[in-house]
Design a protein around this nucleic acid. Sequence first.
DNA 1: TCTTTTACTTGAATCACTCCAGAAAAGTGG
DNA 2: CCACTTTTCTGGAGTGATTCAAGTAAAAGA
Lengths: 139, 139
Amino acid sequence: MHRTDTEAALRGASLRVTGPRLAVLDTVGDHPHSDAGTVARLVRARLGAVSTQAVYDVLRALTEAGLVRRIEPEGSPARYERRVGDNHHHVVCRSCGAIEDVDCATGSAPCIGASDDHGFAIDEVEVVYWGTCPRCREA
Amino acid sequence: MHRTDTEAALRGASLRVTGPRLAVLDTVGDHPHSDAGTVARLVRARLGAVSTQAVYDVLRALTEAGLVRRIEPEGSPARYERRVGDNHHHVVCRSCGAIEDVDCATGSAPCIGASDDHGFAIDEVEVVYWGTCPRCREA
DNA sequence: TCTTTTACTTGAATCACTCCAGAAAAGTGG
DNA sequence: CCACTTTTCTGGAGTGATTCAAGTAAAAGA
């Protein structure tokens, strides 16, 4: 049933259903904010050998289809999460790099208006909260 | 007089005053949102030969000293700007990568409260507005 | 000026990611 | 169910940004 959900998601995005895609999508769902290398390791744990390129290709395909969201916090490789369509944001720990989701403070996207948009047509606002996570604060 | 300002800034941060540092700091001030490679080219135009590593080292030292701010928009190399201490944000063009400054919509830092901070001690909020710049919209 | 400390140079390495060409598998029309 | 087209996966090489390491040079302090 979990597998069937995932399969439906792929078909709904008119993407072919393959082992690697199912595994990547499930993995990203189960381990949000993983980078490509971590996803690759987890996928291999499920399926056996899967090439690194396949993982990158799949992540890109899923990202372009809107099934997965790619976030790229400074100083760390790109990370992926299964997106819910809401526009939530992230808290990032400065020392350990941990990431947690944060609901948008002011409701719907784009959640803040720019004071001067320089003539840009703004379609998305991305917010990153930088700080220290509880665990790192103890050290 | 320009040079003296820059020198004072370095001394104020208790950094040694060297040719590469003066040139990098001036360059970042004159060409905001430049990446390391661009800074290197511009610095070489002023000083002659300067190693790439020197530029990276200087940019890091300046960043750590708080004289320069490093921003890292997704999909592009890190960019640097001379920071004013205000917490302003950025609009980024999706197609050409152009970056412009945007003053914070709601005043002083951190300009928005997270709805659930997961116990993190938040010290900075970074906002990126994604859109299309006027020039790219015509194409 | 002399010494100590810090910065710069050269060269190589790493890391995340991409490109390429060919083999394999998924969807499609008969 | 089968041939066919399209898309995906594999393996290997390549790229661009950034960093590491060892030695030389230059700035700050005595």
